[in-house]
Design a protein around this nucleic acid. Structure first.
Length: 510
DNA sequence: CGGGTGGGCGCG
DNA sequence: AAAGCGCGCCCACCCG
């Protein structure tokens, strides 16, 4: 089915048509990989590289200080095109498909932005979309038997519909007994009233506020909430909905990832709660028999990136250490815990308690790093735009924001956006470092046939691989991290270690 | 009764 | 209302 620009339309031999063109190492232009790539995967085709017009549109719109149009990029139903190679030949406006026109427009805008990292960012974001679709398809290996045993230990047997599990009901009863009257521990209103009736003037029932409250219900309530969460959000119903393909007793957890779900570029999920999986529920994520999991996370990613993006030479030098906080402790309050508060408060905009004083230490000892986040905060407070290292840009303030800036709450609104933009440059740069890592790792795992990427969580990756290839896969993960650092920062001597662990269960990692 | 909001808490 | 960033998910509660 010939189409302009070597396009490939939906047809019976989609997989074969794509595979034939993959030999030429094209970068495929797709309207929206999240929608279009699963179709290809289903047909047995794999794309090595793509440009996702929808994701690119969002990045470019924000760079330009706008919000992306609601349905920016649609496949053209008349042309029937979904996949096109880049570059597309241009025979005149009449010959352009909608995808070609949008792609050319984006290419022009990318150049006009004059941000040197922008092309790399769009490529990495697009690669992320491929990774996300592939990971959802493969799934995280999940042992439902282990999950069921864990739930039974914690909660008791699976209850009939509408009932609490036996052990959870016992915990609810303990809360009731501690207060001495009936109440529903799920009801914040009732719990708050119960504390007030007991003469305790708490403002909320948050765990951190209750921590300083001396009442027997506090401990019972805390345990009840922990267990209730496992039951409602990660219990049997959750597994029924999200874990499939368990013929051999081995299931696959298949979350739906939303690439760029957060404004900072971090991913989100749509159902399944993959990015909030409690540590208590990680045991069932297990390698299949004869296989291993390679789990790796980047320690202290954000402060290391703050060192890099600010060019703070003293802080860059400190990234040579495996534990940045210990390394910086002599200069930031003397103890590791204080150095950690100093750094985190500088990146988040913390001001209270110890934080204010420790942030002052940051200013004195690492002025370049401090100035970088302070400048981002000042810009944000005034409604300005800040960008990550590669150029991802915060959303411009809304009309509503400008209005409230000029109202009574203006100071608060400004400070809040300042904290957001302060953190954005760090969290967003961390997200793009991770995207580059994913892209490199995906290619290397595929080319060397080492295993499959099965999970990604902000600064953690997990590979599922045959046991005999685990060491090679672990080496590939370390190389991908080093590559990502080099892609972003070239010869800058910043170190971002990522230590892979070869394990049977996710619970063993960290 | 069904949708929207806020409290609370899981993760990084 | 953490002392400060980004999310998703569940429940109770409120409103139309």
């Amino acid at each position: 089915m010939p189409l302009p620009g070597g396009a490939v339309a939906y047809h019976e031999d989609l997989a074969a048509a794509v595979a034939a063109r993959e030999d030429e190492s094209p970068r495929w232009v797709v309207a929206e990989a999240a929608r279009d790539y699963p179709v290809l995967l289903e047909a047995g085709a794999r794309l090595d590289r793509c440009r996702d017009l929808r994701l690119a549109e969002r990045i470019l719109s924000r760079v330009e200080g706008r919000e992306p149009p609601a349905h920016a990029v649609e496949a053209d139903p008349d042309a029937g095109t979904l996949f096109e190679r880049e570059p597309a030949p241009v025979d005149g406006p009449a010959a352009l498909t909608r995808l070609q026109a949008d792609w050319l427009d984006q290419r022009r805008r990318t150049g006009a932005a004059a941000l040197p990292g922008l092309g790399a960012l769009i490529a990495a974001e697009s690669a992320g979309a491929l990774v996300a679709a592939e990971m959802s398809r493969v799934g995280v290996p999940f042992d439902r038997g282990v999950h069921d045993r864990l739930l039974r230990d914690l909660l008791g047997p699976r209850p009939s519909k509408g009932m609490r599990p036996r052990k959870l009901q016992a915990l609810a009863d303990k809360v009731v007994a501690a207060f001495g009257h009936q109440l529903n521990p799920d009801s914040t209103k009732q719990v708050l009233a119960a504390f007030h009736a007991a003469g305790l003037e708490v403002k909320t029932t948050h765990a951190w506020e209750l921590a300083s409250v001396d009442h027997p219900a506090v401990e019972a309530l805390k345990t009840y909430r922990e267990h209730a969460r496992v039951w409602t959000a990660f219990g049997w119903n959750w597994a029924d909905a999200w874990v499939g393909g368990a013929e051999d007793g081995f299931g696959r957890f298949r979350p739906v990832y939303i690439v760029g779900g957060a404004d900072t570029g971090r991913w989100g999920t749509d159902g399944g709660g993959a990015l909030q999986l409690p540590h208590a529920v990680r045991e069932p994520i297990r390698a299949a028999p004869g296989w291993k999991l390679v789990a790796a996370d980047a320690a202290q990613l954000e402060p290391r990136l703050l060192a890099a993006i600010s060019g703070d030479e003293a802080m860059i030098a400190a990234t040579a250490a495996d534990d940045l906080y210990t390394e910086l402790a002599p200069r930031l309050g003397g103890e590791r815990s204080k150095a950690k508060i100093a750094l985190i408060s500088a990146m988040y905009g913390g001001t209270s308690g110890d934080a204010a004083q420790l942030v002052q230490l940051m200013r004195d000892r690492f002025p370049a790093a401090f100035d970088r986040v302070e400048a981002a905060a000042r810009t944000g407070e005034k409604g300005g735009l800040v960008r990550t290292w590669l150029g991802r840009t915060v959303p411009a303030p809304s009309e509503r924001w400008w209005r409230s800036l000029n109202s009574d709450e203006g100071t608060k609104v400004a400070a809040s956006r300042g904290r957001f933009t302060r953190n954005f440059i760090v969290q967003g740069t961390a997200a793009e470092w991770a995207l580059v890592l994913l892209a490199r790792l995906r290619r290397e795992l595929h080319e060397a046939g080492l295993g499959e990427l099965v999970f990604f969580l902000h600064d953690e990756v997990m590979v599922h691989c045959p046991a005999e290839r685990a060491e090679a896969a672990a080496a590939a993960v370390e190389r991908a991290a080093a590559d990502a650092t080099a892609v972003l920062f070239g010869d800058m001597p910043v170190r971002i270690p990522l230590r892979p662990k070869v394990v049977d269960s996710y619970a063993e990692a960290k």
